Computed example of a mutant assay.
Amino acid sequence: MIIGDPRSKKMQSVMNLKIKYRESFRPFAPSVAHDRVSEFFEFDSDRHVSPYMLIVAPVHEDKRIPMSAEQQQLFGIEKLNVPRSEIPSITHVDYSARLQTVHPETNPRYYDLIKNFESKTGCPIVINTSFNVRGEPIVCTPEDAYRCFMRTEMDYLVIENHLMSKSEQPKWEKDDSWKDEFELD
């Protein structure tokens, strides 16, 4: 998976354009620590789970950013780029999000990652998107992951207990012909 900071107003665009190579306005899914989900979304985490991003829930009213009259008059991409909440990279234009609830019993490492992010930022949510670029299958091997990492503008790659920084990797011979290998959607 590719993760990012949902609080960033630019993260959605950066991840779409520089990593996924798709339209900048496409929203991402939030991975939320299950014990904090009801603080951000209209979702009863005591009664429901959403481990696979199959459920859409509204962002709580107190987390939303109402559009001004001037913003409501915008059209197209300009209107889509108006932040809708405190977590703009995962908030859809209708103030909803496609949730993934993360539980320590079923996904302890990912839950710990989200809780560590929360301890540093106060936000119990990270962006989650599939580890692939537009038109390619999801990575399946460490080699696939490294190749995708080096071909995009991702900053870091984690494989098991190893953290790789892009700046510390050998120079990658840029060859964009791989983009022609798969039909784009």
Rank of each mutant, 00 (worst) to 15 (best):
33 A>P: 04
115 K>G: 00
52 Y>P: 00
104 P>D: 07
32 V>E: 05
173 E>M: 10
65 I>Y: 13
141 T>M: 06
85 S>K: 07
136 E>M: 13
79 K>F: 10
64 R>G: 04
35 D>A: 03
92 H>N: 13
52 Y>F: 12
19 I>W: 04
170 P>D: 00
31 S>G: 14
167 S>E: 15
20 K>P: 03
83 P>N: 13
71 Q>T: 00
93 V>Y: 13
87 I>F: 11
156 Y>F: 15
5 D>W: 10
173 E>G: 01
61 E>V: 08
57 A>N: 06
112 D>I: 00
152 T>D: 09
80 L>H: 13
62 D>K: 11
131 F>M: 15
15 M>G: 02
157 L>S: 05
43 F>K: 05
124 P>H: 03
130 S>D: 03
76 G>K: 08
151 R>G: 02
94 D>I: 11
42 E>H: 04
50 S>P: 02
138 I>M: 10
143 E>W: 04
148 C>E: 03
51 P>W: 09
174 K>T: 09
143 E>I: 06
141 T>H: 09
179 K>M: 11
182 F>E: 06
85 S>A: 05
62 D>G: 00
184 L>H: 12
165 S>V: 04
49 V>H: 13
137 P>H: 10
151 R>Q: 14
123 C>R: 12
131 F>C: 13
13 S>T: 12
53 M>Q: 08
74 L>Q: 13
12 Q>N: 15
181 E>P: 00
91 T>R: 08
69 A>T: 11
145 A>T: 11
81 N>L: 11
21 Y>N: 06
32 V>I: 15
116 N>W: 08
26 R>W: 12
3 I>H: 01
168 E>G: 00
106 T>Y: 13
104 P>H: 15
87 I>G: 02
77 I>F: 10
155 D>I: 05
33 A>L: 08
34 H>R: 08
138 I>G: 03
167 S>A: 12
66 P>K: 12
98 R>T: 07
155 D>W: 00
18 K>L: 07
120 K>Q: 10
153 E>M: 11
74 L>R: 07
170 P>V: 02
59 V>N: 08
23 E>Y: 10
26 R>L: 15
40 F>W: 15
37 V>H: 02
155 D>H: 09
100 Q>A: 02
165 S>G: 00
184 L>W: 09
82 V>H: 07
89 S>A: 15
32 V>R: 09
93 V>A: 11
152 T>V: 03
70 E>T: 04
87 I>K: 06
101 T>R: 10
178 W>L: 01
26 R>I: 10
27 P>R: 09
31 S>W: 01
97 A>L: 07
52 Y>H: 06
77 I>W: 08
59 V>M: 15
128 N>L: 04
